[in-house]
Computed example of a mutant assay.
Amino acid sequence: MNSTRHDEFRDYVAARGPVLLRAALQLTGDRAEAEDLLQAALAKTYLAWDRIQDRAAVDGYVRRAMVNTQISWWRRRKLDIYPTDELPDQPVDDHTRRSDLRDALGRALDRLPERQRLAVMLRYYEDMPEAEIAEALGVSVGTVKSTVSRAMAKLRDDAALEADFPNASHPRP
């Protein structure tokens, strides 16, 4: 791979890495495993970089590589798990509570006005810088900042979210 393609791949990883890491985290549920999964998928993508004609499809290629790798790892791990009469000493992660919180947050986002919801999604889910969001929405950077700020304030004060999770902390950015 020549240096131009190497630079192109490096720029892609720098730009899309945080978003892809969040996708890997959704697949694994563990930050360290997510980092390993993303690294494995990016290694596969790097090897196939010359064959990927449509650069707009690279995210899909990486995500598919992550899913395939995760399934492979899961199958391999499944063979290594043996039943036991002893319970583990470590507390079990409460996936149900995390899922309920994610659902409640999704409903709270749905209650935001469309422009605020879009700004929050682009900023925090897609990890886009404010300048890119401003360009995508056709507004100024200041408008993006104030829109995101108002949306976050509404989410913090959302009574329905508070009712679902009264003990959840609501950090202020």
Results as ranks from 00 to 15, higher is better:
1 M>N: 10
1 M>W: 06
3 S>E: 12
5 R>S: 15
8 E>A: 04
11 D>W: 03
14 A>K: 05
18 P>Y: 05
18 P>L: 00
19 V>F: 04
23 A>L: 11
24 A>S: 12
24 A>T: 09
26 Q>E: 13
26 Q>Y: 08
27 L>E: 07
28 T>D: 07
33 E>D: 14
34 A>S: 12
35 E>H: 07
35 E>Y: 03
35 E>N: 06
35 E>G: 03
38 L>I: 08
40 A>N: 14
41 A>C: 05
42 L>T: 08
44 K>P: 06
48 A>H: 13
49 W>F: 08
53 Q>A: 13
54 D>E: 08
54 D>K: 06
56 A>F: 05
57 A>H: 12
58 V>C: 06
62 V>T: 04
63 R>M: 10
63 R>P: 04
63 R>S: 03
63 R>K: 15
63 R>F: 06
64 R>N: 08
64 R>Y: 02
67 V>C: 02
71 I>N: 10
71 I>E: 14
72 S>M: 07
74 W>C: 11
74 W>P: 05
75 R>I: 06
76 R>Y: 13
76 R>T: 09
77 R>F: 03
79 L>S: 09
82 Y>H: 15
83 P>H: 04
85 D>G: 11
86 E>P: 03
86 E>G: 00
89 D>S: 08
89 D>R: 09
93 D>Q: 12
94 D>I: 09
96 T>K: 15
97 R>W: 13
97 R>A: 12
98 R>I: 03
99 S>P: 05
101 L>K: 09
101 L>A: 08
102 R>F: 15
103 D>H: 11
104 A>Q: 02
104 A>E: 00
107 R>D: 09
109 L>N: 00
111 R>V: 02
112 L>Y: 01
115 R>M: 13
115 R>C: 07
116 Q>Y: 05
116 Q>T: 07
118 L>D: 07
120 V>E: 07
121 M>T: 14
122 L>K: 13
123 R>T: 03
124 Y>G: 03
124 Y>C: 01
126 E>D: 09
126 E>T: 01
127 D>T: 11
129 P>W: 11
131 A>V: 06
132 E>W: 07
133 I>F: 04
137 L>M: 13
137 L>P: 07
140 S>T: 15
142 G>Y: 01
142 G>Q: 03
142 G>M: 01
143 T>Y: 09
143 T>Q: 09
144 V>L: 04
152 M>P: 04
153 A>K: 14
155 L>D: 01
156 R>S: 06
158 D>E: 05
164 D>R: 05
167 N>W: 12
171 P>L: 00
173 P>D: 00
173 P>I: 00
